[in-house]
């Protein structure tokens, strides 16, 4: 046992570190999906594309300013705002027209996924692009050095999560969102502007995914196909966490992020994903309310 730890300890530590960073980013993306599901009762298949757009805009901002730090800060503001705008537009001209019918929405957002992906391909081209990290420093551990920027990513994601939590419990928007989530009809009778809330939630969900995209580009490259994987992972997280439960989403993001980190370091990433998708399918079948969620009526 002790020899195993001596041999693999550093590797395990690295896996935990990477897993934690993944978990924070994943929580941010999945929270967006979860809010949209919770309040609007729809599944947004194009959610991963909002993440991808964030990453691509970030690259665009970097190109525009030609400076990693300024580009990063610009993207931090610009990307969520632009993606939020696209989300509001999609809500108004697509989702509202099909009355948020669950299955039609899935078909429509699949369409949206293709459109966003193709337009990105047309505008930005097929190459994967890297963006320089806004800050570069290494933290030296006894066994290896670790990118300080990755820890900043985790920290900023945590801030984002905190911000959403404050928004939910402190602001009027949050109150309206919770009311709509509880009961749409009652919320309407009490004068909650549900149409605006729907648009706002869809924009917020997209904005969170875009924010995650901005944070992640300096770690991994940006390309038009990068949206599918976070989409599937967020599904897994949202389902395990219980559909529509914020606390559950964050807990599940950690379970998935860290186990993904460990399995990917010691085994193959494909195996990790395979087991995760199988696991989540079984969770849905055997415990439809999720591992941490309350009963969804």
């Amino acid at each position: 046992m002790s020899s195993w730890i001596n041999e693999n300890g550093p590797l395990l530590f690295l896996a935990l570190l990477d897993g934690t960073v993944t978990a924070f980013v994943l929580a941010l993306i999945a929270l967006g999906l979860s809010l949209v599901f919770g309040v609007m009762r729809i599944v947004n298949i194009a959610h991963g594309e909002f993440f991808m757009l964030g990453a691509v805009f970030s690259w665009f901002a970097f190109d525009l300013t030609d400076d990693p730090l300024w580009g990063f800060l610009l993207a931090l503001v610009l990307a969520p705002a632009l993606v939020g705008g696209i989300a509001v537009f999609s809500d108004r001209f697509i989702l509202r027209k099909i009355k948020y019918h669950p299955e039609s929405t899935i078909v429509a957002t699949i369409g949206l996924l293709y459109v966003i992906q193709s337009l990105t391909l047309i505008v930005f081209g097929p190459e994967a692009r890297a963006v320089e990290a806004p800050l570069y420093f290494r933290i030296q551990f006894p066994w290896f050095g670790y990118s300080g920027y990755k820890l900043i990513v985790a920290g900023m994601s945590a801030l984002g999560l905190l911000g959403v939590w404050l928004l939910m419990i402190r602001s009027k928007l949050g109150l309206y969102m919770r009311a709509t989530q509880q009961d749409l009809e009652i919320a309407k009778t009490y004068g909650v502007p549900t149409k605006k809330i729907y648009a706002a939630v869809f924009a917020l969900g997209g904005g969170l995914a875009a924010l995650a995209g901005v944070l992640v580009v300096p770690i991994r490259q940006a390309d038009h196909l990068m949206g599918l994987e976070p989409l599937l992972l967020s599904f897994i997280v949202v389902i395990i966490g219980g559909l529509g439960s914020i606390r559950g989403t964050i807990v599940a993001a950690f379970i998935i992020g860290i186990s993904d980190g460990i399995i990917s370091v010691f085994y193959e990433p494909t195996l990790a994903k395979m087991l995760a998708t199988l696991f989540v399918a079984m969770v849905l079948v055997l415990k439809p309310s999720g591992l941490y969620g309350e009963e969804v009526a």
Binding site: E103, F235, T270, L271, K273, M274, T277, A281, P288
Partner: peptide, 28 residues
Amino acid sequence: LFALRTSGVSFLIVTLMFGQTFYLSILY
């Protein structure tokens, strides 16, 4: 036998996940 224990959107996501598992196992 498994997937039909769910319905609606859950069924959709279960089918998506099983499909993805199958795809990944071909790769693995």
